[in-house]
Amino acid sequence: MFQHIMVPVDLAHMDTLEPALGVVADMARHYDANITYVGITTGTPSSVARTPGEYEQKLEAFAQQRHSVHGRPVTAKVYQSPDPIANMDDLLVDAVDDTNADLVIMATHLPRSLDAIIPANGDKVAARTSSSIFLVRAPQDK
């Protein structure tokens, strides 16, 4: 059913990512799918990396570490933006096109009142792409 899974990764918040990563591993093995881990970074130094090059290295290392867990083929793709928080939705939609992913698995939070003003990224990506979107809640939100 699915051949290529795209997984948006926020290297600054690995704790919230854990449940989604388990689902990715299970789904990839079940469908024999390839996985692309997508990261978005700034041109300025951030808490994760002091340069975009360092960010790429870290995402690549992360992808390889996940490969050792689930054994499925992985790639890492980095997008750079001067305002990643504001451009997140657009960049993820671009990434779905660029990677040709037929399934996106991403971590998300519980619905909250602020969503009316600032919708969750998963909502936006689902609304603007034709791929299937699987949103995984973080356990501490339950």
Partner: peptide
């Protein structure tokens, strides 16, 4: 070590992590 931003540049060596 840390790769250059985009091509050659001269990073300052500090242990400070942004946001620490």
């Amino acid at each position: 070590g840390i790769p250059a931003p985009s091509g050659a540049a001269n990073l300052i060596d500090t242990d400070y992590v942004i946001g620490q």
